[in-house]
């Protein structure tokens, strides 16, 4: 029903932002997962957002934004010389993920603010609809 579409829109925004927060958590948790092989090391992941076409004006879909996929960063892994590490390769190097902790923190703050925006939209819409339901009663 079109009256409640605003909840689906804000809900899709919240879902997309929570995927973003999840990838940030995954990246930060694995920031120090070193590997002995540059190809096997964890790579930073980022979601790709896309606006759903025709979400407004009676389109088929009710959501407004969706996550089309999660891409892995192709920045090179950082090689560290740690011959004492049991994971080190024959030359004594271990490979750390290409996670940039500063970028991830900024991403987390941005995602958190956007999530809060969608929550506010939902709260205000709820109050508007409740007031509409009380129409003619007072």
């Amino acid at each position: 029903m079109s009256t409640f579409k605003v909840f689906d829109i804000a809900g899709s925004g919240m879902a997309a932002q929570s995927v973003r927060i999840n990838t940030v958590a995954s990246n930060l948790a694995n920031a120090n997962s070193v590997s002995g092989n540059a190809n096997d090391v964890y790579r930073a992941r980022h979601p790709v957002f896309e606006a759903v076409k025709g979400a407004m004006r009676g389109g088929a879909s009710d959501a407004a934004v969706r996550v089309t996929g999660i891409v892995e960063s192709d920045a090179p892994a950082m090689a560290r010389y740690e011959p004492g590490n049991p994971l080190a390769d024959s030359s004594g190097y271990v490979y750390a993920p290409n996670v940039n902790a500063v970028e991830e923190m900024v991403d987390m703050i941005s995602a958190s603010r956007s999530y809060q925006n969608n929550v506010e939209v939902m709260n205000t819409s709820k109050e508007m609809l409740l007031a509409t339901l009380r129409l003619g009663q007072s």
């Binding site: 829109i9 932002q17 934004v65 969608n118 509409t132």
Partner: peptide
């Protein structure tokens, strides 16, 4: 007017949901 207002609320909610979508 009420109908247009609720349509506008949907449209702005759509804008806010897509605040981080490239090329939106």
């Amino acid at each position: 007017a009420l109908r247009v207002r609720s349509q506008r609320a949907e449209l702005i909610a759509n804008n806010l949901a897509n605040a981080d979508t490239p090329n939106f």
